[in-house]
């Protein structure tokens, strides 16, 4: 079960202590300990494959990457990739990931989850991590449905959708995560589609390389519970922003494109700015001394003396 892991870890042992091992990984070596338990045909397979390819292309080693997820079908992803992983509580991945990233800002932290996990129960963390511009890459496998709970509406379900919890059709409006993220302070905002793998790999690579909060909302169709927004539905409609002459540094153009929905649905990089530092770059405590997690503990005798003096 774990031969691939043992091999690659053994090969990289020699490089322990150097930041980038020179061993070029293969996608196969990024295989996790078990195979995904997603339904055959699930879009999430495409996200997993694209993430692995992006890690290989960027020359990262398994120990340099931390994947953090919440709960839901897509949140099982950390178990399917050979990298450090945290499979946290429903909705809490971004909060946990922020703590881990600030504690060790050498890690490439990739947060993975679904639309319900991120935009529903985790909505508050989503809003605040965007404004903080935490250096995270957030991959939302957006299937516009709650799958693991066997099919109820999610925050991105289209108005009118019939599910087990809305048997007569949903009357609520959906969240549009793209303008929300642009307005919310995310500094890299993109949309991908699992039906366009190479394009998706490019978006994920761009997100990991970006210093700051990168949201990549990914159409990742649910083959079991969402028959409205299927692979075929998106295949017929998605248009690449790159081919639409879009300039991702133009805020108003990004907002305009973000609201397009219908016969043509844009995918690609909507918005990117590189003039804002990430949270860890703004934090004076991290200015020198390396990752917090590696620093020696304790208070110096001089500091202790001054702390006590303040109480007298």
């Amino acid at each position: 079960m774990s031969t691939a892991i043992t091999d690659i870890e053994a090969r990289t042992q020699g490089e322990a202590g150097t930041r980038h091992g020179h061993v070029q990984l293969t996608v196969k070596e990024l295989k996790g300990k078990v195979d995904p338990d997603w339904c055959p045909g699930c879009g999430d397979f495409g996200v997993l494959a694209a993430l692995k390819q992006a890690i290989v292309d960027l020359g990262l080693q398994p120990h340099e990457v931390l994947t953090v997820s919440g709960i839901g079908c897509s949140s099982n992803l950390p178990g399917y990739i050979n990298a450090y992983g945290m499979h946290t509580l429903h909705g809490r991945a971004l909060a946990v990931a922020t703590g881990a990233q600030l504690a060790n800002h050498n890690l490439k932290v990739v947060v993975t989850g679904g639309d319900g996990d991120g935009y529903g129960i985790g909505g508050n963390h989503f809003l605040h991590n965007m404004r903080r511009n935490v250096d995270l890459t957030y991959l939302v496998m957006d299937n516009q449905i709650y799958g693991l709970t066997t099919g109820q509406i999610s925050p991105t379900s289209v108005k009118g959708m019939k599910t087990k919890s809305t048997p007569f059709g949903s009357v609520e409006n959906a969240i549009n995560p793209i303008p929300l993220a642009i307005a919310g302070g995310a500094t890299y905002v993109a949309r991908g589609f699992t039906g366009q793998q190479k394009h998706l790999v490019g978006l994920i690579k761009g997100g990991i390389q970006h210093r700051g909060f990168a949201l990549i909302d990914i159409f990742s169709p649910c083959v079991t519970y969402n028959h409205d927004n299927s692979h075929e539905f998106f295949k017929a409609r998605v248009r690449r922003l790159e081919e639409m002459g879009h300039d991702p540094t133009d805020f108003h153009a990004a907002m305009d494109k973000a609201y397009l929905w219908g016969e043509a649905i844009p995918i690609g990089l909507f918005w990117k700015r590189t003039d804002l530092p990430a949270l860890d770059e703004l934090e004076p405590v991290l200015a020198e001394g390396g990752p917090l997690a590696y620093r020696p503990l304790g208070v110096s005798p001089e500091a202790a003396k001054s702390l006590i003096q303040d109480l007298m």
């Binding site: 909060a95 946990v96 703590g99 990233q101 504690a103 508050n124 605040h128 934090e283 997690a293």
Partner: peptide
């Protein structure tokens, strides 16, 4: 590192993330 967080759910989860990292 001191952070004021959006709610207590975020607080404890952020602390857990930092603790896991060491």
């Amino acid at each position: 590192m001191v952070r004021q967080v959006e709610d207590e759910i975020g607080v404890i989860n952020m602390a857990i993330g930092a603790a896991h990292a060491g």
